[in-house]
Design a binder for these strands. Structure first.
Lengths: 354, 354
DNA sequence: CGTTTTATTTTAAACGTTTAAGTAGCCCTG
DNA sequence: CAGGGCTACTTAAACGTTTAAAATAAAACG
């Protein structure tokens, strides 16, 4: 453990007013001030008012470090982003979830800190970092839940909520991926499509659930799944999706509709269609997933499934805070959040064709 | 100040191993352990090794709160997002800047905390919050720099770096907006355009600089600016831009090229062009600003100006850390970061027309 | 008016660090 | 051999809180 530079004590930092300052000015003990400010009952109304007034006048604010040291609570939540593609905050789904998580957490009085793996230039695991910073809880939102780092946190003793992945004994918030895909399949088959291709995202719990939903819905609708049209691609990767789309469309037998891994990737798919001299939805229909803002600014507007990121983030924060503040809260809750199909104009109605 | 619930001391939290534990096990004083682990010179190699080994075996990690309490340094940086449109993290430019800021800050050993306005359910200003959390520095990145909250921080005694806005006596990282617009104007006029319209973004320092660049470049190129074609719109607002674009195109005299406030808004503009039965770039050319990922997935690919978000975020972090660690660092530095024109296919070459 | 109860305040210890100052022990050196 | 200068430690105080326990004052009771 190398030294951190602590030579200049305080340095430019202004001296904050402390409980002691107030106690001196008002002629009471520090303990009384603390209790008055924290609303304990064993302090008279008169002194409480005097102290509150003084605190306000002197611009007092508690020192979070000292408080945390004593109480072992920091009012801080850690955010763990595995960020494998380096997209991190740029990923609209995560950014939106995080945004509403943040809003809800703030309303409950918590701050958000990103948990990284080196602090003060020394390496530590994510879990160690959480311990170091003493976060009261952690939210895990990432694409790859199979890393050592994730396991450590999951097996640790800090309250945890995961997004879109279920661990035994941990609370999870799940976007309803099966239902989303099923609704899309229902919609598309309702429009008369039978030749449906599906480009999956990266291998992950989410991808599995979506595929399961896809197969189930096709089954129910009596649609045969052509194994050649079930491709494994990447999330958030327009280039890859571009290639796969071209591949799908270059065969002699063409699907009439393609499910893209997500809206962002779909843009690659759309380019591929166009580059092959075909049109959407005239020659081939396309559906996305996510319901990101851009998808509705395209022409044709993309038919997609809007994930309720606000509800997901909010639920995550609520659950996490609840785990922290009422330790008896059950650990294993799984909360499913439904989304909503957005009917764009990227799926042709084959029923009207003849 | 209402009470925070501190009833259960520690609660589920695991007890961390402390310097005391190590000192007991190794039969030395706490001070020696501290100094050994912090690399002070007045401890023998033998004991240092013994202590380091013990620390590792026992899974010791320093307690950041205790350390901060003593040293007045938290290794924590505050992020201030004014977030007026509520877009927050969803804003690609900010998300990208923040992402690289985060990466660089982490490399320097700092964590990132979002500064909000209520902690433990009590309201406080952003500045008060910074004091409460004792952040070592703050980065301000927002659209509106004229709020009370911003002023308070700027006038405070915490190291600050601002993004895209200059205050006296504070370090600022500026995306080179004049140059960006000038290059775009040069490019567009080079393609033979003389009838150029400009939809501005929200009133702000950035908008002013861009407009200045626009006017200057037009002047230099001998282009007359038609006041009717200088509209004030909003950043990040496709709907507004849609309306303004329609307005521009419905006059008898049409511009041959339109500068959009930003790429995201541009998508609204593109829709407007299309909805009027016109084509890009056949009937009217369009340029954006920002160089977001989506802009290059459109067809035609958008001609735009890529802001170097990585360099901006990195520079911000570097400067902030430098301000913190070397107090003698000059306060008033302004760092300008150039971007790069991206030639898409949304601007017609009028020179070839005849 | 002594005694118990209740309301209010203070004392003191603790949380886990850092660090100035003090204390040995030891080796030099004039 | 007194004194100075190292080296390798230890002591003790401090950072700003919280809180159990003790102390005091005030009130109530029989």
């Amino acid at each position: 453990m190398r030294s951190i530079s602590t030579s200049r004590k305080g340095g430019r930092k202004h001296q904050m007013v402390s409980l002691k300052d107030i106690s001196v000015r008002c002629g009471v003990s520090v303990a009384t001030v603390s209790k008055a400010l924290n609303g304990h009952k064993d302090v008279s109304e008169a002194t409480r008012e005097k102290l509150l007034k003084a605190a306000k006048e002197m611009g007092y604010f508690p020192n979070s470090q000292a408080r945390a040291l004593k109480t072992n609570r920091t009012l801080n939540l850690g955010v763990m982003f595995s960020d494998e593609a380096g997209s991190g905050l740029t990923h609209e789904f995560f950014a939106k979830v995080l945004n509403s998580f943040k809003t809800e957490a703030e309303a409950a009085g918590y701050d958000i800190t990103f948990i990284n793996k080196n602090v003060g230039r020394q390496k530590m695991s994510t879990y160690e970092h959480c311990k170091y910073r003493n976060v009261d809880g952690v939210i895990i939102a990432c694409t790859d839940f199979t890393t050592q780092d994730v396991f450590e946190v999951i097996n640790g003793d800090i309250p945890v909520v995961t997004i879109d992945h279920i661990f035994d004994c941990r609370t999870a918030i799940m976007s309803n991926n099966e239902k989303g895909i099923e609704e899309l399949v229902d919609y598309v088959t309702g429009m008369g499509h039978k030749k449906i291709a599906y480009i999956q995202g990266n291998k992950s719990a989410v991808a599995e659930r979506r595929q399961a939903g896809f197969c189930k819905a096709c089954m129910n609708r009596g649609i045969d799944i052509n194994p050649d049209w079930l491709l494994s691609g990447d999330y958030h990767n327009p280039e890859r999706t571009y290639d796969l789309t071209k591949k799908l469309l270059s065969g002699s037998d063409r699907p009439s509709c393609i499910f893209m891994p997500d809206d962002y990737s779909a843009m690659g798919g759309l380019s591929a269609v166009k580059d092959m001299g075909l049109s959407v939805p005239g020659d081939v229909s396309v559906v996305g997933y996510d319901g990101i803002a851009y998808s509705q600014l395209l022409s044709p507007r993309l038919t997609t499934y809007l994930q309720d990121t606000t509800a997901i983030g909010t639920a995550a924060a609520k659950q996490l805070v609840s785990l922290i503040e009422n330790p008896q809260t059950t650990f294993t809750e799984v909360i499913t959040v439904d989304g909503q199909l957005i009917e764009g104009a990227s799926v042709a109605d084959l029923n009207q064709r003849h």
